[in-house]
Simulated assay, not measured.
Amino acid sequence: MRETIRRQLQDLTGKAEPISDELLANLLKHRRILVILDHISEMSEATRQQIQLESLDINALVITSRLEEPLNRTTQCRIKPLRIAGNRLSSFMEAYLTQRGKRGLFTDKEFFNACIQLSDMVGTRDITVLLAKLYAEQLISAKEGYQSADLPENIPDLMLSYLNELNRDVTEDKLADRTLHQDAKAIAWECLKERYRPASAHIKDAIAALPAPDADQRLHYLESKLRLLQTVGVAKENLRFALDPVAEYLAGLYLVDLYKTDSQQWQDFFKTADAQSGAPDAIKGFLLAVRDCYLAKIPGAKDSDFVPKEIGDRTMTQSALPQAVAQPVSP
Rank of each mutant, 00 (worst) to 15 (best):
I140E: 08
C115I: 03
A142C: 05
Q138L: 03
S141A: 15
I116Q: 15
Y135D: 05
D120N: 15
F106Q: 09
T128Y: 06
A142S: 10
T107F: 03
S141F: 09
I116N: 03
L139K: 09
T128F: 11
L131M: 12
Q117D: 13
K109V: 14
T107Y: 05
D120L: 10
A132Q: 02
S119A: 12
S119E: 13
A136L: 09
D126F: 10
V122A: 03
A142I: 01
T128Q: 06
A132D: 02
L118F: 13
E110G: 09
F112W: 13
K109A: 13
Q138C: 14
N113A: 15
E137A: 04
L131I: 11
L130W: 08
A142K: 02
T124F: 06
S141N: 14
L130G: 03
D108Y: 09
N113C: 06
L134C: 01
I140D: 02
K143V: 01
G123F: 02
G123C: 05
Q138W: 00
E110N: 09
F112I: 11
N113G: 01
F106L: 14
M121R: 04
F111R: 11
E137P: 00
L130A: 12
K133N: 11
F111C: 08
D126T: 12
L139Y: 07
D108S: 13
V129Q: 14
I140C: 08
R125I: 05
F111V: 10
A136W: 00
D126V: 06
I116E: 14
V129L: 14
V122N: 04
T107R: 11
N113T: 09
L130F: 12
K109S: 11
M121E: 05
A114C: 12
D120E: 13
Y135W: 05
V129R: 09
N113H: 11
L118I: 02
C115M: 04
L139W: 04
I140W: 01
V122R: 02
K109M: 07
N113Y: 06
Q117M: 13
I116R: 11
F106H: 09
E110M: 13
K109L: 12
G123V: 04
T124Q: 12
L130V: 07
K133H: 04
F112C: 00
A132R: 01
K143T: 02
G123W: 01
R125A: 12
I127Y: 03
L139I: 08
I127M: 07
L130T: 11
I116W: 03
I116A: 14
K143I: 01
A114Q: 10
T107G: 15
Q138A: 15
A114W: 05
F106D: 11
G123K: 06
I127H: 01
F106Y: 13
C115G: 04
K143E: 15
D126L: 01
A132S: 08
L130M: 09
F112G: 00
A136C: 15
K133P: 00
D126E: 14
